[in-house]
Each structure stands twice: as C-alpha cells, then as structure tokens.
Design a protein around this nucleic acid. Structure first.
Lengths: 138, 138
DNA sequence: TAATTAATTTATAATGATTCTAAAGTAGTG
DNA sequence: CACTACTTTAGAATCATTATAAATTAATTA
C-alpha cells in the first residue's frame, strides 16, 4: 500500500473524502520519520510554500480538528500563548525548552513510575502527563 | 497588619498604586483559605456581582498580569480552551477533572519522586509539572 | 489643604486566533 | 454523463486579549 493509499485510508476512516488539499496535509503530517510538533500557523506557512495546492486556513483547521477527534493527532498544552499539535499519539511526555520554545518528546519509558498519593473519591485516573521544562545549563 | 495593609504591600511590591479597584481584586484573590483557580472571565463575573466597585476588564487583565510577573499568581496550562490562574504559587501539580472541568491541587509531596531518564545536552531541568487527568469512576 | 504631576481607570478600538457562512467547485454514485 | 452531497474557499463573525487616549485619581510638594 502506497503512502497515498494510507492517507486515503486515514481520511476515509475519519469520515472525510480524500481531496487533494487533505492529501497534501496528510503528506506534511504523516510522511515523516520523526514526530512533528506544530501550530496551525506553522502548518499554514509550510503549506503555502511547499505545496502545489492552495489550501485555505479553514480547510486546515477543519482537517486538523477531525484528525484530533479521530485520534490521529494529539493536542499538547504547554502554555497559553500557542496551541501545539503532535503527530505522536502514543502515551508520552514532553520536554519544553524555554530558551527556544522547542518541544521534544519524552518516551513513556524515559519517565520512571509516578506515584500519586492522593485519591479523589469517585474519580479514577485517566492519564498522567509530565511536562519537563528545561533551559540552557551554562 | 490588617489584610488590607497586606494587599497594599503586595501592590506596592508589584510596582502598583493601591487603588480601590486593585484592592477589591486582591480581596477576591488572596483573602481566602484555600487556593483559588480561576479564569479572567470568572474573576470578571464575580467582581461584577460581589464588589461595590465597577472594575473594567482592562484593569483586571492588567492587575492579573502584573501579579503573575511578580510571582503572586501562577498560570496553569490544562488545555487550549481556557487560560487558568492559580493563587497557589508553590511548586505543585494538578488533577484535572475532565467530567467537570474542575482543577484540584496536588501537593508536591503527594507525587512520588519522578525519574527522568533522558538528558538533553546543554540543558538543565527547570521544573517538572505533572497533570493527572481524572474522570468519574462510576 | 491646594496645586501639580504622574499613574490609573475606563470605554472603546484594534488585533489575532478561531469558527462560521454561503457560494462555487468537486468527488462519488448510478 | 447527471445528480447529489460533501468540500473548499474567501470573507464575515466571534471571542479573548491588548492597546489607546481621554477622564479620573493618587501621590507629592508647597
């Protein structure tokens, strides 16, 4: 199965028709080796330059939100200034480099077991997310 | 020293003149036993009802941001939809109740030691923040 | 205390991100 | 090919936040 076919599958599974705009977005997001952290604004800039297709902002927002709902993308909360998305949808954690505003993935296995000693009656833990803020060590 | 005097001190330390609007904001934020998690919108609503003073949104934004910069308030990143502030400025963590959107403090000592097994060359860890998402266990 | 100066408050405008809308275009189906 | 439903798009609408500039108030000085 070609990459393009995989993208078409992803789109169909998300209830979206495979259009050239959406396929261009898929290429940008999923045709890469490493995980990709991005903002909508990032995506828009890259697509404006790289892609042959002219893709409107509304289409980008739409597609990203559907992928997020479907679980093909994760949204990361680092700070209130920007909204980041992540192509790594496995359970994992993040470094945030406060000197450069760069996000780096931290594998689940790179974080030791976390013990939560407080229990909230009637609630159960759904997920534990760790954000490690780093800065230049000089 | 009365509460009001403490508020005046806080304001002065932040480089702000003690006006009645700012003192009303201080009362709301700091005259309480438990930590307070809020959005600007929350604050505005409470002030609109509770306080004798008419306080404009611009004043609220201004004051909150100065307090944040001074370290009298912390901003918490839970999700991209809302921007929350916290009157607890010690190092600590949070539960986020996804059923109710409620934030609950988790004391530093309620979280076991966290081992980060990955090192980023040239960077040092500034802080480690844990967000525990919970839901009804029905 | 009155006068002066500088900071503050406020309503409103400006901005920026995101969402909505409705007209024009395109994919899927028979 | 024709039809229908889904998409795309530009631009408008909305919402949170920030900026602005005139009116008000606090602090300072005489």
């Amino acid at each position: 199965m070609s990459n393009k076919d995989i993208f078409i599958e992803k789109l169909k599974a998300s209830g979206l028709r495979p259009t050239k705009q959406r396929i261009a977005i898929c290429k940008l997001l999923f045709q890469r080796k490493d995980t990709f952290h991005f903002t909508i604004n990032n995506l828009n800039n890259i697509l404006k330059n790289s892609s042959v297709e002219k893709i409107s902002l509304a289409t980008i927002y739409n597609t990203i939100h559907v992928f997020k709902k479907k679980g093909y993308l994760k949204e990361i909360s680092i700070n209130s200034y920007k909204s980041y998305f992540d192509t790594n949808v496995t359970h994992h954690h993040h470094f945030f480099n406060e000197s450069t505003n760069e996000i780096i993935d931290l594998k689940d296995s790179d974080v030791g077991k976390i013990k939560i000693k407080k229990v909230i009656p009637g609630k159960k833990i759904k997920t534990i997310e760790v954000l490690v803020k780093i800065e230049n060590s000089n």
